[in-house]
Simulated scan of single mutants.
Amino acid sequence: MDQRLTFAHSPCPNDTFTFHAWSHGLLPGAPALEVTLADIDVTNGLAERGGTDLLKISYAALPHVLDRYALLPCGGALGRGCGPLVLTRPEDGPDAFAPARLAGRTVAVPGDRSTAYLLFRLWAARAVPGGVGEVVVLPFAEIMPAVRDGRVDAGLVIHEARFTYPRYGLHRLVDLGAAWEADTGRPIPLGAIVARRDLGAQTLRAAHRAAAASVRFAWRRPAASAAYVRAHAQEMAPEVVEQHIGLYVNGYTAELGEDGYGAVRELLGRAAAEGLLPPVAPGALDFPGA
Rank of each mutant, 00 (worst) to 15 (best):
Q234R: 15
V132M: 11
H24R: 05
D53Q: 05
A226I: 09
G104L: 10
L138I: 12
V280C: 06
T184S: 06
L268T: 00
Y69L: 05
D92C: 12
A273I: 06
P28L: 02
E255H: 12
A273Q: 09
L72H: 07
A61R: 11
L71N: 01
A116K: 09
A281M: 02
L78P: 03
R105V: 12
P189I: 04
R221I: 02
A103N: 10
G260T: 05
P288E: 07
V135I: 14
M144A: 13
V229D: 00
G262C: 01
V137P: 02
A273E: 11
G93Q: 13
Y252V: 03
H64L: 15
T115C: 00
A30V: 04
L176I: 08
C82W: 06
T16I: 04
G150P: 06
T115D: 00
M1W: 02
T6W: 00
L138C: 10
R216K: 14
P288G: 07
Y261G: 07
L102M: 12
E255N: 10
V264G: 02
G200K: 11
G133H: 13
T253Q: 09
T115L: 03
D92R: 13
P282M: 05
Q243H: 14
L199G: 10
A60T: 03
R221K: 05
L277G: 04
L173Y: 11
P13K: 02
A103Q: 12
G93A: 14
V280E: 03
V147W: 07
A284V: 06
C74H: 11
P99C: 05
T6C: 01
R162I: 15
M1F: 00
W22I: 08
P189S: 04
G269N: 00
